[in-house]
Simulated scan of single mutants.
Amino acid sequence: MAPQLRHQPLREDDPRRIGRYQLTARLGQGGMGTVFLGRSPGERMVAVKVIHTEFATDPTFRQRFAREIAAARLVGGFHTAAVVDADADSEHPWLVTEYIPGPSLHDVLQQHGALPPRTLHILALGIAEALEGIHSCSIIHRDLKPSNIIVSTTGPRVIDFGIARAFDSTALTRTNVVVGTQGFLAPEQLAGSASTPATDLYAYGMVLCHAAGAVPFPDGETLESALELLPSTLVNVITNCLNHDPAHRPTGTEVLGTVSRIMF
């Protein structure tokens, strides 16, 4: 899974500078904003997320972006991207994190297909350790999916806390609006219930099924057939993560302990 970078040139209407950071290319675009490749005054490569113009005047989105910044500052460790700088009050609010060279897991799977068992095991370890660190900061990611996982030379990195929230915070979403990505949503998210760390563990299970070759919930696909694509050593732990009842799912620490004991 060697990194294969997929930068896109800046468009005519893209900014060339945000704060003190010079922008050099596009890295991707999501529902909340566009991510650019940038360069700091000290010539360090950074990722610069700029909120979409149509949302910048919406107090709800500004509040959500401010929470993203706060969440990202709290979460550190080997498996996330460190925050470098941010400004939630700018005309065009922005967040700068360290730049992690490498494709997203989504792009890897699109280009190369299902991962071999050993690579899948390394991925399972890295994401579990990332979730352990995220949850230890009382943060729920709520949108764990292959496009939010960067495959770097140092292992998988979990990014984009755009809809993360503290365990005790008030939901920023409107009534009856489901937050997350179809195919990786836990049953409680689909039902409109409160998210917990167990919500991320369900998404973790779906990410690994996807990395093993299953497309999330295609026509005719069943959970059993998705689990059959996993190495036998991972089936039990992933089955537990995909339990319909969040109270019966393991924690990130428990998953990490279980997967780390698997011998290859």
Rank of each mutant, 00 (worst) to 15 (best):
Q4G: 04
R6P: 00
R16D: 03
I18K: 01
L23N: 09
T24K: 13
M32D: 01
T34K: 13
G38A: 06
G42P: 00
G42W: 00
V48Y: 11
I51Y: 00
H52V: 01
A56M: 02
T60W: 04
Q63L: 11
F65C: 02
R67G: 01
E68D: 02
E68N: 08
A70M: 02
V75P: 06
H79D: 04
V84N: 09
D85A: 08
S90P: 01
H92G: 00
V96K: 04
T97E: 09
E98A: 11
P103C: 13
P103K: 02
G113M: 06
T119D: 15
T119M: 13
H121A: 07
G126Q: 15
I127C: 12
I134F: 04
H135G: 06
I139E: 11
H141C: 07
L144D: 08
L144A: 08
N148E: 06
V151D: 00
G155Q: 09
V158G: 11
D160N: 12
G162H: 03
A164R: 03
A164E: 10
R165A: 15
T170Q: 13
T170V: 14
A171Q: 13
N176Q: 15
G183Q: 08
L185E: 09
G192A: 02
A194F: 05
S195T: 13
P197A: 04
A198Q: 06
A198F: 02
T199H: 10
A203M: 07
L208F: 13
P216Y: 10
D219H: 13
D219C: 00
G220S: 11
S225L: 10
A226H: 05
A226I: 06
E228V: 03
L229E: 08
L229S: 04
L230M: 12
P231N: 12
N236R: 14
L242G: 03
A247K: 09
T251G: 01
G252T: 07
G252A: 15
T258W: 03
I262F: 07
